[in-house]
Design a binder for these strands. Structure first.
Lengths: 238, 238
DNA sequence: GATAAAAAGTGATCTTTTGCAGCTTTTAAA
DNA sequence: TTTAAAAGCTGCAAAAGATCACTTTTTATC
């Protein structure tokens, strides 16, 4: 089923894919001159919050979590980046250290582009600055939306929203007709929602009993998205 | 007292001032060609979330809250913009509707710059795109920081942080040597922290009894910032 | 496939936060 | 200065969420 009109999925997606999409041949070539492609295992850290930013990363394949760790050691996942997205460019553009950490959620292929190449590509390009401004501004909208939701919605609502969004992300790697399986640990799920693992387990059980989803080991399959949208709070209005 | 080294105040400030600061004469002149200056009373709405974005706003004097209202009518204040800051540019750059609403927290003087002027100023300028990229990227860091804090800190800690940040904002309009008075309603304070008015009143009383602050009507004067920083959770580490 | 380690699920309890009701103080307007 | 309305404060009860201990299931590795 499509979410169109039922759930504001745009409010939850950065779409940084569009930055490099259909870039003029020469500009793309230049950007890739010193590109360093690398395979990452599941759970590997790509960069850490506070580290001096040496470049940006292009996710050629896989899913990456972006997160912050607070002083008590708890992890807050800010965003899940998918195949085709760029990460790490904020630090370069702001000329600051990485504001968050990034780690793979599954096996990934990721290309590294050195800071200098990225910056001079922007310098030379006419479309890159414009695209970056657009993407960054859109990201702003996504993030303030997240703040409102985290500040005002219950854990149950937030879990519902998280599951809907994750389902869309996992849809991309799923063949048409095949069932969409969300494959993240309960702990990662808890760190996205901003609660403890136990709470997640409890609500997942509740959702399962309500016929909203089915689990296969750690994997989750949403069987009734509509009901989930209702719980998310976006169901009636918007 | 200075917060340097004690509290990461940079994590809480957009600093969009720097966008127009010391802009080359001609570029600034062009940007201001059709500028429309207007006086706003306290509490007036500047633009509303979801409205088609017609331009950007330059706060010449005063403080403005940026907020979202959820379906239950609750307001979440995302940011307080101060004298010298720009607002409304995200929507223009992203080519989307305003992602949040803006309203004055006090009497303000605000100048409106039409969308077309802003966009062609960017087109013609060499420094504007760069500055915008830098500002937007920094804003990203500020917002993800907010998400972590809202998701993981207690109401008491969040109030402490909010008070420290507000104090810095009100410092700007205060003559040197004069006492810094934070002048916002309990309701606005609650909407910044993301809780109810009653909770704010309770913790303010607690802080008052602990000798951290003093109230004069609705106005708040922080008398022991250090203690507040300890409560905020930034005291020991960072 | 066996097995150890890790992750997930459940129950009980404790803490934090919310929301209501009623009261007091402050503010603004007559 | 008076007065009405708005804003702020406090106590209490209920709800939501966090934490701990323990069991069960799953995953990964030999």
């Amino acid at each position: 089923m499509s979410l169109a009109g039922l759930f504001p999925i745009d409010k939850w997606n950065f779409k940084s894919q569009s930055i490099l999409n259909n870039l003029p041949e020469d500009e793309y070539g230049y950007l890739c001159a010193n590109m360093l492609e690398q395979k990452y295992n599941k759970g590997e850290v790509i960069f850490r919050e506070g580290a001096v930013a040496s470049g940006i990363f292009f996710i050629k394949k896989g899913k990456v979590k972006k997160y912050q760790v607070d002083q008590t050691g708890r992890e807050q996942i800010i965003y899940v980046a998918n195949t085709g997205e760029l990460i790490g460019y904020h630090a370069i553009l702001a000329d600051e250290r990485y504001p968050d950490s990034a780690a793979t959620l599954e096996e990934c292929v990721i290309a590294f582009i050195p800071k200098e190449d990225f910056l001079s590509a922007i310098e030379k390009s006419t479309v890159l600055p414009r695209r970056l401004l657009k993407t960054l501004s859109h990201e702003f909208a996504v993030l303030i939306n997240s703040i409102s939701v985290v500040a005002q919605r219950s854990v149950k609502e937030r879990l519902a929203i998280t599951l809907i969004v994750l389902r869309e992300k996992f849809k991309e790697g799923t063949a048409a007709g095949e069932e969409i399986m969300i494959n993240v640990s309960r702990n990662d799920l808890a760190n996205m929602v901003g609660t403890g693992d136990e709470n997640i387990a409890r609500f997942l059980t509740e959702f399962k009993l309500a016929g909203i989803l089915r689990t296969q080991g750690r994997k989750i399959c949403i069987t009734d998205v509509k009901k989930l949208i209702e719980i998310s709070g976006y169901g009636t209005s918007e």
